[in-house]
Amino acid sequence: MPLRCSLLLGFVLGMAVIVLAQPPSIYEVLSANGLPMGLIPRGVTDYTLDDYGRFEVHLGQACNAKFEDEIHFDMNVSGVLRYGQMEEVDGIAAQDLFLWFPVKGIRVDVPSSGLVYFDVGVVSKEFSFSSFDTPRECTAIVHPEHILPIRVPDHHDDAPLLLLDS
């Protein structure tokens, strides 16, 4: 009988350790890497992060969030996470006037500067760090076909992809 109790107690304690050892949320990962938690909107269903900083975030649906400008998030957002920056970003676009610019990278120059920079290939868009303090609600795209990809001539071999809001 004491052996059964010991085994049962060991099993219960083992399960408690597994439950308590939950991985951090993507928002905690961003914060630990010097980035504001609100760079990824609410609605994350899961995410992966490997030892090299490659990440993929899965949202329940493609959506737009309003910050200083409108930001579009695909259902899957990926990139490489480094301290103070996201590189090789895929799945995020920033709107300026009526054009959608795919975001290639995001960086916080110096956290005390209060600025976040979105690299959209041709230029950088500057946002207030405080705009991304908390994850925003993200509105589902009712008609995703309103975002039409077009190529814009550039001085580089790989012309940046612009998205035109029709």
Rank of each mutant, 00 (worst) to 15 (best):
residue 44 V to W: 06
residue 77 V to N: 08
residue 70 E to D: 07
residue 68 E to F: 00
residue 53 G to E: 05
residue 80 V to M: 11
residue 68 E to S: 06
residue 43 G to S: 04
residue 63 C to Y: 11
residue 55 F to D: 15
residue 54 R to E: 08
residue 64 N to Y: 13
residue 58 H to V: 10
residue 54 R to I: 08
residue 50 D to E: 01
residue 46 D to Q: 15
residue 45 T to R: 12
residue 54 R to Y: 07
residue 67 F to P: 02
residue 54 R to P: 05
residue 50 D to Q: 01
residue 49 L to C: 10
residue 76 N to F: 15
residue 55 F to G: 13
residue 68 E to P: 01
residue 59 L to H: 03
residue 69 D to Y: 09
residue 67 F to K: 09
residue 65 A to L: 04
residue 50 D to R: 10
residue 71 I to R: 07
residue 64 N to M: 04
residue 46 D to I: 14
residue 60 G to C: 03
residue 52 Y to H: 10
residue 56 E to D: 02
residue 53 G to R: 11
residue 79 G to R: 03
residue 52 Y to C: 07
residue 52 Y to R: 13
residue 65 A to S: 15
residue 79 G to A: 06
residue 73 F to L: 01
residue 60 G to D: 06
residue 47 Y to I: 08
residue 72 H to S: 14
residue 65 A to P: 06
residue 58 H to M: 04
residue 46 D to W: 15
residue 69 D to F: 07
residue 44 V to R: 07
residue 65 A to D: 00
residue 58 H to N: 06
residue 71 I to Q: 05
residue 47 Y to C: 06
residue 52 Y to A: 10
residue 77 V to Q: 07
residue 45 T to C: 05
residue 58 H to R: 12
residue 65 A to G: 12
residue 67 F to H: 15
residue 68 E to H: 03
residue 73 F to P: 00
residue 59 L to F: 03
residue 73 F to H: 09
residue 55 F to M: 12
residue 59 L to G: 02
residue 63 C to I: 14
residue 58 H to Y: 06
residue 74 D to V: 00
residue 60 G to M: 01
residue 53 G to V: 09
residue 45 T to W: 02
residue 45 T to F: 05
residue 75 M to Y: 07
residue 48 T to G: 07
residue 61 Q to E: 04
residue 49 L to V: 12
residue 57 V to K: 02
residue 76 N to R: 13
residue 56 E to R: 15
residue 63 C to R: 11
residue 58 H to L: 04
residue 62 A to P: 12
residue 56 E to S: 15
residue 70 E to K: 14
residue 78 S to L: 00
residue 75 M to E: 10
residue 51 D to R: 08
residue 46 D to R: 14
residue 74 D to W: 00
residue 80 V to P: 02
residue 52 Y to S: 13
residue 73 F to Y: 15
residue 43 G to R: 05
residue 52 Y to G: 09
residue 51 D to N: 13
residue 75 M to N: 09
residue 57 V to Q: 03
residue 80 V to C: 04
residue 49 L to F: 14
residue 48 T to N: 03
residue 60 G to E: 08
residue 65 A to N: 05
residue 73 F to W: 04
residue 59 L to A: 00
residue 72 H to E: 09
residue 43 G to P: 03
residue 79 G to E: 01
residue 72 H to M: 08
residue 45 T to H: 05
residue 75 M to T: 15
residue 46 D to S: 13
residue 53 G to I: 09
residue 66 K to N: 11
residue 44 V to A: 06
residue 43 G to D: 03
residue 52 Y to Q: 09
residue 67 F to L: 07
residue 61 Q to D: 02
residue 51 D to I: 03
residue 72 H to C: 04
residue 50 D to W: 01
residue 71 I to E: 00
residue 65 A to I: 13
residue 67 F to E: 12
residue 53 G to H: 11
residue 46 D to P: 15
residue 58 H to Q: 11
residue 70 E to I: 13
residue 62 A to W: 00
residue 50 D to G: 08
residue 72 H to T: 11
residue 49 L to E: 06
residue 45 T to E: 10
residue 69 D to A: 10
